[in-house]
Computed example of a mutant assay.
Amino acid sequence: MTLDQARGGLWAIVPAAGAGTRFGAALPKQYLEVEGEPLVAHALRALLSHPAIEGAVVALADGDPHWPGWTELEGKPIVACLGGATRADSVLAALAALPASVRPDDFVLVHDAARPNLSQADLQQLLERGRADPVGAILAAPVRDTLKRAGDDGGIDATQPREHLWRALTPQLFRRLQLTRALEAAQRDAVVVTDESMAMERQGHRPLLVEGSEDNLKVTTRADLALVAFLLRSAAAGED
């Protein structure tokens, strides 16, 4: 399927230009295999298997030798574009690479390439509530652990109240033009934003928090990789 053949509608963006050096593997972590497929494939399938998602743009590192060259998954188009040095650079490049059928006021999803265990129920909830909000929404999980503030010597300085604190997950859902302007403003101000919501918040917006599953893990350690493999096996067994 070519880009010209793609239907208009809700598109997803997957920034996948990171080198993943902190993981310490030979491959960038988005290409590590779990249950026979790289993490990025699981992430894309979770998005594209939802009937509301029309296609995905994946932002890749320059000269990425690991990208399989997919142009379609789950019967829907995948467009690859050149990402950048930061997450914001990659998301901006992907926003620009969206098909013309995606209008400035249309919502787009941004999802981590190394977050393979997104449930359809969470995605549906995000879409229902986020598209009813004037700004948009993110999947997130309330902080349940006791939080400690550490001193420079490694000792505990204080216990932090956890009420009203949430962990940001993905996908995050915002309008194409608003997100583009927010990310561009952060770039102009030389502010490194760690997620799309942070860029929107800097513009005075208040995205909605939609509670998502704790097992929507972002793989950052080898222990995470083993846990995600278990979760994906369990989900597959439940479908049989």
Results as ranks from 00 to 15, higher is better:
R233C: 14
G55R: 10
Q160L: 14
A140I: 10
Q203C: 08
E35V: 11
A96N: 10
A46E: 05
L179C: 04
H111C: 13
D112E: 15
D89E: 04
T86E: 05
P38T: 15
D153P: 08
R176Q: 02
P207G: 09
L177C: 09
A93C: 09
C81S: 06
L95A: 07
L183F: 03
L10E: 02
D189R: 13
D195Y: 07
D89H: 12
G130K: 15
L47M: 04
V34S: 14
T146N: 05
D224I: 15
P207M: 09
R45N: 07
T21H: 08
V102F: 01
A85T: 14
Q120W: 01
L232N: 03
S234Y: 12
L208E: 13
L177F: 07
A114I: 06
D189C: 14
K76V: 00
A93I: 05
L179N: 12
F230V: 10
P134E: 06
A199C: 12
E211M: 14
A114N: 09
A226R: 15
Q178S: 12
A237T: 10
E163D: 14
R45Q: 07
L118Q: 01
I78F: 05
L109G: 08
W70S: 04
G154S: 00
L82T: 01
L231D: 09
P65H: 00
G130D: 07
A80F: 11
E128H: 03
E239H: 04
L39Q: 07
T146D: 11
G36P: 02
D152S: 13
L209P: 07
D153R: 08
T71C: 02
A150L: 15
H42A: 08
D240A: 14
Y31M: 08
A114F: 01
V228T: 05
H50L: 01
V34Y: 05
A16K: 04
A100H: 02
G204I: 09
A16D: 11
Q120M: 11
Q120I: 01
L165M: 11
A96T: 03
A52L: 12
L27K: 01
L47D: 00
L147H: 02
A158D: 08
Q125Y: 01
F230T: 15
G130Q: 08
L179W: 02
C81A: 01
E184S: 13
M198V: 10
A226Q: 11
E35A: 04
Q203E: 08
S90R: 12
L123G: 05
Q5C: 14
R87Q: 15
V228Y: 14
P38H: 06
T180A: 13
D106I: 00
A94S: 03
L48K: 02
S234Q: 14
H42S: 04
A150N: 08
N117C: 05
A88Y: 02
Q124C: 12
E163Q: 08
R181C: 12
A229Y: 12
L44N: 09
A61T: 11
R115A: 11
V143W: 02
Q178M: 07
A56M: 01
V91R: 13
D145V: 12
S234N: 01
S234V: 10
R188Y: 09
A52W: 07
A140E: 09
E201L: 12
F230I: 10
P65T: 02
L32E: 03
T220C: 11
L179M: 07
K148R: 10
G84M: 10
R87S: 12
L47S: 00
L47G: 05
